[in-house]
Computed example of a mutant assay.
Amino acid sequence: MKKVPFYELKPGQVVAEDIFKDSTLLISKGTVLKNKDIIRLRNHGIKNVEVYDENDFLEKKIEEKISIEFDNIPAIVEEETYKEWHEHFEFVKDITHLKDDPSELDSLAEDIYKKFLKSEDVILNLFHSLGDEALNAHSINTAIISSIIASKLDMPDIFLNNLLKACLLHDIGYSLIGKRVVFDYIDIEDVTVRSHIVSAYETFKDMQKKIGKEVVDAISTHHERFDGTGIFMRLKENDISPLVRILQIGDAYDSFIEAGNTPYDAMSFLLRYSGLIFDPYYVSVFFSIVGLYPTGTQVILNNGKKATVVKKGKTSSFPVVECEGNTIETGIDTGLFIREVIKEGE
């Protein structure tokens, strides 16, 4: 892998790291550059690009498309199960197939929510994908997080089914228009952000009988805001469907991490905008599940040692951590607590 200045880029080179401009993904890792890609990077003022060199290919250093977020922590589900969901989502994403037969969508939604029904001690170590399949992973992760929240609240099966179908389809609009804003909760006036809602609504409005009116409504209103300043309809508080208010927690948390932030930063974002963008009640439920320091948060303990948060402990402020090969519960019993959070890159 090597960093190449913009003026040395050539068609045929393979991008080694996702290229972002603000929170918009311009070029995905693994993309074989074409002239139009290079022109796009120039137009966005990108100065340097990480590309693979021959040694990377010879030594097989390119990662697989699906990868776990934190290698030293157990995954949220078995990798084989996640890959199966990933494959199923390819059928769900095929709108022509979905119009003819929505059973794949129902089956995938049911598989996910049954996996997390009454789940305890959640280790929120998610998988992510690269390139064109990044949307697949985000949609599944949104469904996983939303399922965990709804299960905590003992929501009925019919609610869970509709919720997960909405989660899986909420960002299909990006697939339809061919580009995506990874984290789309700040600049809601962005043309791409607004277009993905419109394109999804136009696609699904005639499918309400097959996938459910509540699901279609949730997809088209998932960027409303709790304080009434959202996109298009300006719905407020309880006028926004609970499907949407739960979906937004999983959507924002996962996409904030995908955009290059830490789990701790993602939780902090939810807390900061609780009551503004997000329903405070559902933020508090999610907080009660994962705590102040979500899975994967890098910390320094009061003994000066670095540790990684595995899951929430007995209280939200005292998580279970992995430190020098040992699993430790912070708190009064051990006399260990978190002194500070390690920022990205430190």
Rank of each mutant, 00 (worst) to 15 (best):
K99Q: 14
P156G: 06
D121L: 08
D171R: 10
D206I: 11
E120W: 05
K179S: 14
L98P: 10
F159R: 09
L160G: 00
L105H: 08
A109T: 05
N162S: 10
H97M: 11
G178D: 03
A166L: 03
G212V: 02
S107R: 13
F127Q: 04
I177T: 03
D217M: 12
L105C: 09
A218F: 09
L169E: 05
L98H: 08
F127P: 00
T142I: 12
I211Y: 06
N125I: 02
I144V: 11
P102I: 11
T221K: 15
V193E: 08
K213L: 05
D94K: 12
D187S: 07
K209E: 15
D100H: 13
K152C: 06
G212E: 10
L124V: 07
L105F: 03
V191I: 13
D157Y: 09
H138T: 11
N136E: 02
L105G: 04
F91V: 10
I149T: 06
L153A: 09
L169V: 03
D171M: 03
L135I: 15
S220Q: 13
P102C: 13
S146Q: 12
I188T: 14
V198F: 08
E90K: 15
G178I: 00
K213V: 14
L160E: 11
A137E: 02
K152W: 04
R194K: 15
D100G: 12
Y113A: 03
C167N: 12
E120S: 14
Y174D: 05
N161W: 03
K152V: 00
V198N: 11
I144Q: 09
L160V: 01
F91Y: 14
K93W: 03
L126F: 13
A166N: 06
L135T: 11
V191H: 13
N141F: 00
